[in-house]
Structure formats: C-alpha cells, structure tokens
Design a protein around this nucleic acid. Structure first.
Lengths: 332, 332
DNA sequence: CTGTTAGCGCATTCAG
DNA sequence: CTGAATGCGCTAACAG
C-alpha cells in the first residue's frame, strides 16, 4: 500500500497523488478528489520513514524521564504529551530508571530516529552533551546539567525550600531536619541550599544542621532514616526534599507512632494528591508540574523552528507553599 | 554524517562499512576495526528511517493509554516500557485523554511510523479495528474490544469485584452501594457484573441494587455522588469500582464527616499507594499492574516475531483482595 | 572477503 | 496543471 498504488487507482502519477494528498502545489480539483477517494478507499497511510528520509521532519520528539512511576514525572510527561500532540508531534517516551547509561542509550536512539527535538529530565549530563554536540535541539526540564546550547525549565528550588523552612522557623521551630535523596544534581543541591539559607537568615548559622542524604539508592532508605531519627532526638520538624522521601518520612513517623504535627512537623517539597488525603494533611511546596511540561515543550518547539540554534532560554517557575495541617508550633 | 562518510574515512565502500557495523556478513577483522574507529570518531549514528524504509523493522512499539496522570496507567506504561526497552524497542507513548478520536489519530500515527506493534489500553474499538485491519500486531491491555486478531491481557474484573463484595457480605453488610464511572466497556461492565453476582449468590437477588454510574464525564461527579449518598441512606458500605471513584468517594465521605468504617465501609477496585497511607487504610482489590504491562509486551513481541498472525492469545490475570481497615461489620 | 548495483516510498525539481 | 526523473541513507543481492 504505497502512494504508487493510490496513484494507479486514481489514474494519475505518483507525483500528482503526492501533491493532491499533501495539498501543496497545483492539482486540479477533480483529480484531487479522485486521489483522496482512492487513498481513503485503500486505507492508505503515508510512510513517515520515507518522508523523514527525504529530508522532512520526523515529527517525533523524544522525552526522557527517570521514573514514570513517580507521579511527578508522570504528570510532567502528561504535560509534555498534551502540548506536543496538540501540535501534531509524536512523543517517544523513555524511562531511564535513574541510570545514566540508559539515558545515553536513549539519547542515541533519539538521534537515530532523527527526532526533531528532545526533552530531558534525567540524571547525568552525558545524554544532554551528546545530543547537543550532534546539533539536536534540547530542552532540559527540572534539572540543569550545565551543558550550553539548550534551554532549561526549572522550578526555583532554592526559593521553594527556603519558603518551606521559613514557614517552620516562623512557627518557632529551631531544630529542623532535612531528608533528601540526592545532592549531586542542581535540583537537590538547590533545595539543600535553600534550607541552609533559611537557617542562616534566622541566625542559626552556627547552630547544628540536621541533614540526612540518603543518596539515590533504590527504594529502601528506611533503616538509614530510622537511625537518623533515633540520633536526632531534638528535631521538632522535618523538611522532606521531594515526594519520595516525604512518603518515606511520613510512613516512618507513623510507624513509630510519632504524632504529627504535635511531636514533629512535616513539610514536603512537591505536592501529591495523597498529601491532602492523609491525616493530618501535609504542608507542601507545590510545583506547577504539568505547566512545566507544557512550557518545556513550547520552548523546545520554538528552538526546533529556528533550526536548533539561538540563545539559550532559561525559565524558572515559582513554586508556592500550601500550608496544611502537618505543621504547627513546636510544643514546649 | 552518513554511512558513506564513515566508509570514506575508513577507506572502504559503504556496503562494507554497513556490514562491519551491523556485524552481518564477512568483513576482515582489521577493516571492521577501522570502520568502527571511524564511526566512533565521527560520532556516526545510523538513520533508522533509512533502515526502516529499506524494509527492516522500525524498532518502535506504540503504546496508547487513556490517562497518564492516573497512576494505574503510569504504572502500566512503566511495565511496558521496562519490558520493551530491555528488548531494544522504543516506546512511542500517546495519551488519548479518553477521546476516541485521539485514539484513532494515534493509531494512524503508529501505522505511519510503521511501528512493529501496538499496545492499546484506550477507550473505543475503532483504534483496534483500524490497526488490525492494516495487519498491525496488536495487544490490548486491561480492555477487550472484541476485535478479532489481537491478543488481550486483562484482569479478572468480575472475580475481583465479586471478592470485594463477598468480603463486605461476609462482614454482614446487606445494603452495599457501588460507584462506577463507566459500564460501557468490558472493564466496568464486568466489575458491575461481579457486584451483582455476589449479591445474587447471597440471596439478595430480589433486594435493591444501589448503583451509581457517573459516566465518563470529566473530573467532577461530586454532586452526583452527593445526591446518591443523600438518597441511599440505608447504605452501610460502598464498593468503588476504580481508583478514580475511590478517591472521589473517600473525599466525599470525609467531607461529610462520615466515619469509616464505623458508619460506612469502603472497598476500592485497584490499589494505589495512598490507600495504605490514609486513615483508615483502604481495603482494595490489588491488580498486578506492572506485571500486566510486562506480560502484554511479551505477548505482543511474540506476535510480532511470528509476523502478526496466529491464534489470538488471551491472558486473564487474577487480582487479590487486600483487607485493610476501611471495612468492618455494620453497626447495629 | 569486498565493491558495485539497485531500490525501499516519498517529495521535489524540472520539463512538458 | 501534470508526469518523469532524481535522490534521501541504507542494506541485500550479486559479481568480482
């Protein structure tokens, strides 16, 4: 079922059929009708490979995320998908499960497919570097690898973390722990920085910092967290730096029978549906995740349209703090 | 940057370079080395369009889901992605947002890309029919459109629903409501059927059935639910037919200050993380979602390998009931 | 073992 | 307005 078959059925040449279907160039109206009818009748579907090979765009945009099961990324992907499919692009999704090798493999696959552009929210900078070197239009989301020549859409992580910790400070907390699972990339680093900046501004610069960095280990971390909580008996509040650790902390506090917020306040960076369903509901830094995906898609398409070049655009979206019932003044 | 450039750099012909890189056919070892070195040096990435056009496989599998933001589908997609990327396939993901037109558009796009196969978990049968007609290997997941010539992987929805309702009956409930948002496709229909079968088996055949079908409207449904609960004052338990309505019901019960499970028991079909975090934790029918995705991917690849033909395979996975604290005997 | 030839399906010249 | 010719990048025959 090729264009040739359609042309034959319509009694024209392939080139006329091509023009008729593409709507470019001159074709007599009645011929166009006939070609369309034939295509329809035969169930003709154009071959994108041939079209792409011919030099036209592939119509695909690559999207790389590090964990689709994390609602944050699922929502991000949904935002991206929403924006791109509205423009007629196909999204090729890859989940690298936090592995830099897989990320690089995905990058190579995107190059091989001659994707029109790529959106990245992975770990590591190799993938970004590889793509940019090859002249692929790239927009990073939620992370900034530092590679030049690509756009970036991020959340103001430092401001968000600072707002969270300021909130706790304002309630009177002086011994605030932070639990985080990564301080290697800018996302985690900035959140930690925000935490520190807030403490410093409150004159707690010389005071102790209570930081638990679980590292990007796979799931568990529960034991480390348990040890941390055992050791840090003075804590009256915990700042969880993302939804994964927030869940971990929440479960552990519950397991221990620690009453929230009476005995320990909790703030999460990243707001998920469960946080307003549990008792007490969880105070959280809300990020415009879906919008971030849409925005990144928009920036990428702009870059694609201008041929991949041009100044790097950097968008920093502002999160906001949603105060719920997991935070209150420390007792005593 | 084409194969030709690599060949020139290595001082051979394109076909030799092709063989060297593909590892097929005879090539002298030292030539192979040289070609590889050249390809590596130049950062050569083969063009899949050309390869696909030439008749070889495109290496892409289409995946169509109806709502990525629903954790059920996100998890399903993760399972699919996991299985397929392990086999070297690229997953093209489309979210149809429950729209049959978008689903059909996606199907057409998959055909246009000459996808090697397609996994479908959408609404409607048009997409399936279109793909199958065109000879595309198809496996349906979580739904059975009834179109012949494709594989299906589903959950035993009737058994799951029945287990849920039997559990409630066993606790002594006699007035059990069901809230569902779709009874048009087999998934919802079978769950409703399971509900009815359980009641019938308990000798409540003549009794009243308390069914609220919200229909696949967009989000809200809250008012309809409120009216339903206002009207059905005799209910001592509610069976929510999927995670979306479970959330809706849970929130509404909470809003009304109805104590669960003392005043009203709740069971959900589909278990999500929040269900074990809320108070009381929610009794739920757990589905092996990730595994379902992997299994569907496996069936599809088997079909792809045998050229798309062969008997239709149908896999029905068994769910299991996880009893938590949202269900108890009715008071009185 | 290697190079030459040909063609996948399409869109684009360029003549008619 | 239409059709014949060309080539995108690659690989499978085939002939050296």
């Amino acid at each position: 079922m090729t264009l040739r078959d359609v042309a034959e059925a319509a009694g024209t040449s392939p080139s006329t059929a091509s023009r008729a279907l593409a709507g470019t160039g001159y074709v007599a109206e009645h011929i166009r009708e006939r070609v369309r009818a034939a295509a329809d009748h035969l169930g003709y579907v154009p071959d994108v490979s041939a079209r792409t090979l011919k030099g036209r765009s592939s119509g695909v945009i690559g999207l790389l995320v590090s964990d689709l099961r994390n609602q944050f990324y699922a929502e991000l992907a949904a935002g991206v998908e929403h924006a791109l499919s509205a423009k007629g692009y196909q999204v090729v999704l890859v989940d690298d499960h936090g592995s830099a090798e897989r990320a690089e493999g995905a990058a190579r696959a995107f190059l091989a497919m001659r994707a029109d552009g790529v959106l990245l929210a992975p770990v590591g900078r190799e993938a970004t570097a590889l793509l940019v070197e090859h002249g692929m239009p790239v927009t990073e989301v939620d992370r900034r690898s530092g590679v030049r020549g690509c756009d970036v859409v991020t959340i103001d992580n430092e401001a968000g973390a600072r707002a969270a910790v300021d909130h706790l400070l304002g309630l009177g907390h002086r011994s605030i722990g932070v639990v985080i699972d990564e301080t290697v990339w800018d996302t985690g680093r900035d959140r930690l920085r925000g935490y520190r900046a807030a403490l410093r501004a409150a004159g707690l610069a010389g005071g102790r910092r209570h930081v638990l960095d679980l590292g990007r280990c796979d799931r568990p971390g529960r034991e480390e967290l348990a040890r941390f909580l055992d050791a840090e008996t003075s804590l009256t509040a915990v700042f969880a730096a993302n939804n994964v650790v927030a869940e971990l902390v929440w479960l552990e506090l519950k397991r221990r029978g620690v009453r929230v917020p009476e005995e320990c306040s909790l703030v999460s960076f990243d707001d998920l549906p469960w946080m307003r369903m549990v008792e007490p509901s969880v105070t959280a830094v809300r990020q415009p995740v879906f919008a971030m995906g849409e925005r990144a898609a928009g920036l990428l398409l702009a870059r694609v349209r201008r041929g991949g070049g041009g100044r790097s655009h950097s968008d920093v979206l502002q999160p906001d703090l949603v105060i719920r019932r997991s935070t209150t003044a420390p007792k005593g």
